[in-house]
């Protein structure tokens, strides 16, 4: 279980997150929505241990972010908004490269199976020649190499076709429901949020997203 208590973050004089608290259970798919600059990516980066909060306590499965950082990191799979892969490598080389540096060792067959699970079949193809959707899938697959318990996705489906978006959404939903992984992701796509998320956290003071989602029967909490 992910627990966040009284989390705050400033950038200079600008308060981005103020006294945010929530908890997310295993198997839940939670969406983070809000206008640009509201603090979605900042919250995700703090949860991913990439930046530290000004104050607040965070823990995952009773491991504190402050005292058990390495144990927490082992359980985190972070998928950045930008496609973070080596463009001059093939899909196979990218998977092998990050497997070498990963927390968990996997065989090539297992890595290939991981890609196939995501409907990414171009194993020997150079990444730079893949479509946007396939690159997004590879971006996610790399983050899943070490079998993380919590997946943090920063707009994972931005700029890709509807088919790939559906495939990615279904796969992530399946990971949560069948393997008990916690999935948190930010998106501006309300249809995606409505389809795949169990709960939604709305960041920022703009009531637009809250009202829109509640109209569609979604459980929304403002952070």
């Amino acid at each position: 279980m992910l627990k966040v208590e009284a989390l705050s973050k400033h950038y200079g004089s600008k308060k981005v997150l103020s006294d945010v608290s929530f908890q997310i259970n295993p198997g839940e798919v939670v969406g983070l929505v809000g206008e640009n600059g509201a603090g979605k990516s900042t919250l995700l980066n703090i949860l991913a241990t990439l930046i530290s909060p000004d104050k607040g306590n965070l823990s995952f499965d009773d491991h504190s972010y402050d005292s058990d950082l390495q144990k927490v990191r082992k359980k985190i799979g972070y998928i950045p908004q930008d496609i973070a892969v080596w463009e001059d490598f093939t899909v196979e080389e990218n998977m092998v490269f990050f497997e070498q540096l990963s927390w968990k060792k996997k065989s090539k067959a297992e890595l290939r199976q991981l890609c196939q699970n995501m409907k990414l079949e171009q194993w020997k193809e150079k990444t730079q020649s893949l479509s946007g959707g396939m690159k997004r899938k590879l971006n996610i697959a790399i983050s899943l190499i070490h079998d993380p318990d919590i997946l943090l996705l920063d707009e994972p489906t931005v700029g890709i076709d509807l088919k790939s978006r559906k495939e990615i959404g279904s796969y992530l939903h399946g990971l949560a429901k069948h393997e008990g992984k916690t999935v948190i992701y930010t998106s501006h796509d309300m249809e995606e949020i409505l389809s795949f998320c169990d709960r939604v956290y709305c960041i920022g003071e703009d009531p637009f997203y809250k009202e829109l989602l509640e109209e569609n029967g979604k459980l929304v909490q403002v952070l």
């Binding site: 991913a48 241990t49 990439l50 990191r73 985190i76 972070y78 950045p80 930008d82 496609i83 973070a84 892969v85 080596w86 990050f98 540096l101 990963s102 927390w103 790399i142 983050s143």
Partner: peptide, 18 residues
């Protein structure tokens, strides 16, 4: 400076160790 840095920061060892 690459986008990869985010990924390299969450590996078995710190980015500096890498």
């Amino acid at each position: 400076q690459s986008r990869i840095k985010v990924r390299l920061s969450l590996l078995r060892f710190s980015f500096k160790a890498y």
